[in-house]
Computed example of a mutant assay.
Amino acid sequence: MESGGRIEGMNTLKKVQLGEGHIKEYARFFQTLPYFNSFNETLDAQSPLSRWFGGALLQEEAVLVVLDDAPLFFLRCVPRGNQRVILSLTADRTLWSKVPEAPRFIQEEVLQQGEPKRSYTYHCLLNEWNIEVMRALNFGVSQWQRVMHRELAATKAPELGEGLRVRPVKTRQDFALRVRVQNEVFQNKNRIPLTLSEVLAQARFSSYNPDLALLLEQGDHPVGYGQIVHQGQQEVLVNFGIVPEARGQGFGRILLRELLHRAHRMEVTCVYLEVRGDNEAAIALYQEEGFSSLYESAVFLWPKSTEDASNEALFWAKNS
């Protein structure tokens, strides 16, 4: 199926709904471009942290936009009712710069397609070209994050201050304390509070390591929690944080060092983590403790959401 329109003084833009036999053909074409952004495919190749879709590729659909006979823009996605999860989105950078009306055409003819409630989510690498395309197509930002990693070597256990202790989560009461800490650490309006039944279920997963799920306590009060789990072929630091009233006292550094020390004793050689791109305090701590950045990525939404305008304004200010 094709649709198109003529831009005054320029050539014709045309949309082509691709059948199954042509999707790989055009994917290969865009991969030959020197500035090709394979987006989710690139993320998936870099780290198992980024495997979101599983077998959903079987349901994919794809659209191509051509300028006369030259491929300009390529979109692959998976339908979820009115929502589409984008797998790949890329453009020929040379042609893109020559067709200023292309973004409007793509929004109207490819993204909206006459369906006012149609929406898209897209998780992609952050770089100059990706950001330019997202801004031109008027995508909003839901969240952005940085993936970091550190090779482990033998270290001493950290010195604990008076009244501090670190211990693994073992009993039902311990799990209840973990729930309380995590709900205090990760407070935002869009987060559904964690429940005891959820963490008890997680403890039965093969990825869970009970010796690397640690509570930090000051006296009788839990002040922090963190754990290292097995994901794919990697060990990943997750659910790490200090409750708000105990921050600024070095507790995060103590808990992190204890986790890494115990992980190394269990023959873990490398640890990965994902942190929000706007969490400057956490990023600084991880860098000081030897973590280096692998890449940054973001989740974009179309059309824009007005629920988190401050977060979006901060993102564009940092990436303008």
Rank of each mutant, 00 (worst) to 15 (best):
K15T: 15
G19P: 06
E20F: 03
K24N: 11
E25N: 04
A27N: 11
Y35R: 10
L49I: 07
G54H: 04
A56P: 00
L58Y: 11
Q59Y: 10
Q59W: 08
V65H: 10
L67S: 14
L72F: 10
L75R: 08
R76E: 13
N82Y: 05
R84P: 01
T90G: 06
P100F: 06
P103G: 07
L111R: 05
Q113R: 15
G114R: 00
G114H: 06
K117R: 14
R118D: 07
Y120E: 03
N130R: 10
V133A: 03
F139W: 08
Q145I: 05
H149C: 12
E151K: 12
E151I: 08
L152E: 06
A154Y: 06
G163M: 10
V169L: 04
V169C: 08
Q173R: 09
F175D: 05
V181A: 06
N183R: 03
V185W: 05
K189E: 15
K189H: 14
L194Q: 11
T195F: 01
R204M: 07
R204S: 14
Y208D: 05
L216H: 06
Q218D: 09
V223N: 02
Q227A: 08
I228S: 02
R247W: 06
G248L: 07
Q249A: 04
Q249H: 13
H261D: 01
E280W: 13
E289W: 10
F291W: 02
S292E: 13
S293R: 05
E296W: 02
D308R: 10
D308T: 07
N311I: 13
F315Q: 14
N319G: 03
N319K: 09
